[in-house]
């Protein structure tokens, strides 16, 4: 069931257009896109099936989508949409918080399910390190919601139906922040979310040198390396952008091989969308085996090289 009030989708990136429309349609048949970005992004949104596409403007280099909070809040108070939806990026999390404070509500974040019941918004999101799911019913008039990546299917009505574009550029006061330098530093995990095979190292890998053994397995499988949080933060054996779990990346590869990973919820929630999970651990009681399709109990220094040899034999 949906409400008669419109729902807003705040768009500042081309990758979010279809997914935000798909999510917003769970709440309302009337979905208005508020676009912050260049003309081609507005045109992409307008041909994606929104009821209306509003162009809030193209931000200058020193301004981010977060700086539109005051303008969007003012518009929201005037028009009372059901909710303003956005993706869960760094800038959008900041925008959501600023918008929520201005609308005196609490942002609902990383939402994986959305619906309306009796004209009120009901959302579901995970908490406690991914161990639990909470369902909440919004009590404030306007919801501020960030959506969980991958939880909603993109909605597309095809590029043949461009909807109206309304130029609605709003005044943005630049924040008292000066940009001294901007340097490009792609995360090494750039392609990890798309990898078909991922091998994850956990604390059971005794030393930094032993990571080489795990890397050989990743190579033999044609996969990429990832890790649990302690290896990236604290031990610094691997990049902070390579750890999987609740505060790191969530992935959905065809195969995830957990080597020396105990299987704590905080890590496993990042891989539970994998089609097949394999665990190698010397502790038979490690919780990772209950979360895996196939497992080998044993010392990874013996099991992993044996596995690499067996893989080479069949390739």
């Amino acid at each position: 069931m949906t409400t008669t009030r419109p729902t807003w989708a705040i768009i500042d990136s081309a990758t979010d257009v279809g997914v935000l429309l798909g999510a917003a349609r769970q709440l309302s048949d009337v979905v208005v896109a508020l676009v912050i970005g260049p003309r081609h992004l507005v045109e992409q949104a307008s041909s994606s099936g929104f009821s209306e596409t509003r162009w809030l403007g193209e931000p200058a280099a020193t301004v981010g989508s977060e700086d539109y909070a005051a303008a969007i809040a003012e518009l929201a108070l005037r028009e009372t949409p059901t909710a303003a939806l956005m993706a869960s990026s760094t800038r959008n999390r900041l925008l959501a918080g600023r918008l929520a404070a201005r609308l005196d509500t609490s942002a609902l974040t990383d939402v994986s399910d959305l619906r309306t019941e009796d004209d009120t918004v009901v959302v579901t999101h995970s908490l406690y390190g991914g161990a639990a799911l909470r369902t909440e019913r919004l009590l404030s008039a306007i919801g501020v919601i960030t959506i969980s990546a991958g939880a909603f299917a993109a909605f597309g009505s095809g590029p043949s139906w461009p909807g109206p574009i309304v130029e609605a550029s709003c005044a943005v006061t630049p924040p008292p922040i000066s940009l001294l330098e901007r340097r490009s530093e792609p995360r090494s995990a750039g392609t990890l979310p798309q990898a078909k095979v991922v091998v994850g190292a956990g604390r059971g890998v005794g030393s930094r040198d032993d990571l080489g053994v795990v890397e050989e397995l990743a190579q033999a499988l044609g996969g990429q390396m990832a890790c649990t949080r302690p290896l990236a933060e604290g031990l610094n054996w691997m990049g902070r952008d390579q750890y999987l779990g609740v505060s790191g990346l969530s992935i959905a590869p065809d195969l995830y091989v957990a080597v020396g990973v105990s299987g704590q919820m905080q890590h496993m929630v990042g891989v539970d969308q994998a089609r097949v999970i394999v665990a190698i651990n010397n502790d038979k009681a490690a919780p990772v085996f209950a979360e895996s399709d196939y497992g080998i109990v044993g010392d990874l220094h013996q099991v992993v090289p044996a596995l690499v040899d067996a893989l080479k034999a069949v390739s």
């Binding site: 991914g130 919004l138 080998i296 013996q302 067996a310």
Partner: peptide, 25 residues
């Protein structure tokens, strides 16, 4: 600003849980 309707443990995708034994090879 919202009413908690429920908080429940996440149910996990059911895995096969097959263990291979014997020597590493």
């Amino acid at each position: 600003a919202s009413q908690v309707v429920s908080t429940v443990a996440r149910s996990h995708s059911t895995r096969l849980q097959v263990l291979f034994e014997g020597s590493p090879t």
